[in-house]
Design a protein around this nucleic acid. Sequence first.
DNA 1: AAAGGGTGCAACCGCGTAGCA
DNA 2: CTGCTACGCGGTTGCACCCTT
Length: 252
Amino acid sequence: MRTVQEENRKGPWTEQEDMILVNFVHLFGDRRWDFIAKVSGLNRTGKSCRLRWVNYLHPGLKRGKMTPQEERLVLELHAKWGNRWSKIARKLPGRTDNEIKNYWRTHMRKKTQAKKRPVSPSSSYSNCCSSSMTTTSTQDVSFQSRMSSGKVSFYDTGGNREINQETEENGYSMDDIWKEIDHCADIIKPVKEIYSEQSYCLSYPTLASPSWESSLDSIWTMDADKTKMSCFPNDQFPFCFQRTRSPWSQVN
DNA sequence: AAAGGGTGCAACCGCGTAGCA
DNA sequence: CTGCTACGCGGTTGCACCCTT
């Protein structure tokens, strides 16, 4: 009898695995992960496949640094909802809960470091979020006092009414933030466009939760017997984003 | 140029929950 | 109602890269 550990691969995904996963997701949709994991022959758990898809391979993902607008929105929403990362992520198109979680973690780390060095005008935190963080001061004070009094954990700030109040007093409402984000979305090239610009054969239908079924036929021409990427000309992989650290770069 | 520490991010783990038989 | 399975979420870890000394 073989153990699960013997059967399932762990650790970083290879380019090949990514391609196989993308292929099977396009075939069967981004549900039924255990099934996909099984039929694809990837020695991964369904869970692992789902995570890889959601956090990295999903075509609607935006890569790169958070914009000031996004930073502000994360602050706002976290103040409102606490560590409900997936809920927050839904309000930031193209960002994953994992990404936001990581961002927040980094953000809070910087904050606590700044706290340790109290009167440093050029603290890393203020540098990082200098752009237009109108909401930080009050939150910092209340949050940090709660932190230091041991009432909250490192991550969990819970809901914070004060910040909402303050934003309203400042006249910077959620509507304003949304307007900025809309404006931003105009500037940022839709993923679809980027794909076509780079001569990739794929055209992804929507940014969030694409309905693959509707466009499968036109997009993917795959021989059921071969799991080869007939849809990727010249073995190109349809990403508009760059991998910085990955097994891929090492392959070349 | 090398070493060491810091940072950021991908991926795993455990738990809660929805859906189904 | 109960048990099972799969999925989703939040927390945590590991490691590659970057920066400073």
